[in-house]
């Protein structure tokens, strides 16, 4: 057991204790605080987008920009994986 492992164990214990403590005393499970935006989406999904699935209407319509950025991330990752293995193929 060298010095680094002792330091790591000590600070990991501190972080673990605080995480467990705050998990125990967070506001109760099942009662989220934010209401207005999600309630609007639940009330108006079928009328505004004509979709039954609320999650899909959020992903592609109400918050399309998030999906655009995420598609960019996926595209970049695929391009870099193909690029990383290109030289080894030949």
């Amino acid at each position: 057991m060298n010095q680094r492992n002792i330091l790591a164990a000590a600070f990991l214990t501190i972080v673990a204790v605080f995480l467990m403590f705050s998990a125990l005393f967070m506001h109760p499970f099942g009662e989220p605080t934010s209401q207005a935006m999600d309630q609007y989406i639940i009330d108006n999904t079928v009328g505004e987008t004509g979709a039954n699935n609320g999650v899909t209407s959020v992903v592609f319509d109400y918050r399309g920009f998030d999906t655009l950025g995420e598609a960019t991330v996926l595209f970049t990752a695929v391009a870099s994986v193909v690029m990383l293995f290109r030289r080894l193929k030949k």
Partner: peptide, 30 residues
């Protein structure tokens, strides 16, 4: 119904199929 939502689903589905299979195939070949 749904307007552009099914069309966008098709586009993203095509993208994910091609992307994930490209990753798997390239790793397997390498």
């Amino acid at each position: 119904t749904g307007g552009t939502l099914p069309l966008m689903n098709f586009a993203v589905g095509l993208k994910v199929i091609a992307g994930l299979f490209a990753i798997v195939l390239v790793m397997a070949i390498a």
